[in-house]
Nucleic acid binder design. Structure first.
Length: 375
DNA sequence: CATACGTGGTA
DNA sequence: TTACCAAGTAT
């Protein structure tokens, strides 16, 4: 691993910031220095690419212009504004933190990374990003870009998948951050990481800091950073129930203890929950069991038919869902006294906050039934 | 510390 | 299709 002298550090800052001033990206959240704007952009950018974020950022600020607007927002409005961005707890945590700011901080922003971390949804990276960009605190914002850039520049071979490694990088980068322009320094590293120093197709030979790049000199750019691979997603067979009555389609809201919390979908039944004692159950067995349960648990009689085609598949970071659609068309409207759902006319479904898998189920159902889409 | 948590893009 | 990547955090 490389060590830089004080002179090298000064030289690096100068080279990096000159490039950033000349070639840094003009992004919507880089206009002005509003901590609310920085905060929203940083949370949206967690595990999400810039091009995806831009339209969401514009719409979000138009919908919730201030911390107070966000604190007072209706949850469905909030979830709808976040629909499609993923990692939906970010949206709910954003509102919780907005309420912390209003209630506990009386709208006065904490200005240091250590204090910002007390806000829910703000971890070490986001706290440092806000503190440096909005309040000029001299701290490194250690995200995936910083890991990748400095792992290569200094040939650091610690595994960045290990939580402990963050501390090492923070200590290494801290003395390199430009004390005059910490926010610009951190954003310059991000721009470097998403241009000349990408994970898969880097162009280190044209990087503005190639003279400082030990991995490039060694011809080993792609050996850094070191990162252990994630396990493959677990396969999860589901049944998706498309239940229609004269009042519309039956929709249920995802609960606080499950993923996609607060979003709406057709009722989903995990195949593994049906026959814990019979791993050899057939499709007919599963349909019979679902019918039995809906009659006894919800007092709703179903005459289920199998919807043709391959199961709807949807992959998450840790799960791969395969959803077989079943449908029932009821002649009258059953009471939902025993089931936490609601009947929604086809044309009104799209107004609900919906996860991607629900959009896929609707598209598949419409196609198989030769229906117009749910709009 | 390891795992849960979404979606879209690329090879 | 599979695998992996993209400005991480909470538990």
């Amino acid at each position: 691993m490389e060590k830089w002298s004080a002179a090298t550090i000064r030289d690096f800052r100068k080279t990096l910031l000159a490039w950033y001033d000349d070639e840094g990206r003009d992004l919507p959240w880089r206009h002005g220095r509003n901590p609310y704007h920085t905060w929203i952009s940083e949370v949206m950018l967690q595990q999400t690419q810039v091009n995806t974020v831009i339209p969401y950022y514009q719409n979000f600020l138009a919908t919730f212009p201030t911390v107070t607007d966000l604190a007072n927002a209706e949850e469905p409005t909030l979830l709808k504004a976040w629909q499609g961005l993923g990692y939906y707890s970010r949206a709910r945590n954003l509102q919780r933190a907005a309420r912390q700011l209003v209630d506990d901080y009386h709208g006065e922003w904490p200005r240091t990374a250590a204090e910002l971390e007390d806000l829910v949804g703000i971890g070490p990276y986001t706290a440092s990003a806000i503190a440096s960009i909005a309040f000029d605190q001299v701290v490194p914002a250690v995200d995936g870009n910083a890991f990748r850039v400095f792992a290569r520049l200094l040939m650091i071979d610690d595994d960045i998948a290990k939580p402990k490694t963050r501390q090492l990088f923070t200590e290494i980068i801290q003395p390199i951050v430009d004390p005059q322009r910490p926010g610009a320094f951190n954003q310059a590293i991000m721009d470097l990481g998403s241009s000349y120093m990408t994970a898969k197709n880097p162009d280190p030979g044209h990087s503005p800091v190639k003279e400082f790049d030990a991995s490039y000199r060694a011809g080993r750019v792609l050996d850094f950073p070191v990162k252990t691979k994630a396990p493959r997603p677990k396969s999860m067979p589901y049944y998706g129930l498309v239940i229609h009555s004269p009042a519309g389609y039956l929709m249920v809201q995802r609960g606080a203890q499950e993923m996609l919390t607060g979003y709406w979908s057709f009722p989903l039944v995990l195949q593994a929950d049906l026959h814990t004692e019979n791993p050899d159950a057939t499709l007919a067995d599963d349909v019979a069991e679902i019918t039995r349960r809906w009659a006894s648990d919800y007092q709703i009689p179903l005459d289920l038919a199998v919807v043709g085609g391959q199961p709807v598949s949807h992959t998450y970071t840790h799960q791969r869902w395969h959803v077989k659609l079943l449908t029932a068309d009821l002649p009258t409207v059953p009471s939902l006294e025993f089931l936490p759902g609601k009947w929604v006319p086809a044309a009104e479904i799209a107004a609900l906050p919906l996860p991607k898998v629900q959009e896929k189920m609707m598209a598949r159902f419409a196609k198989q039934q030769d229906l117009p889409l749910f709009e």
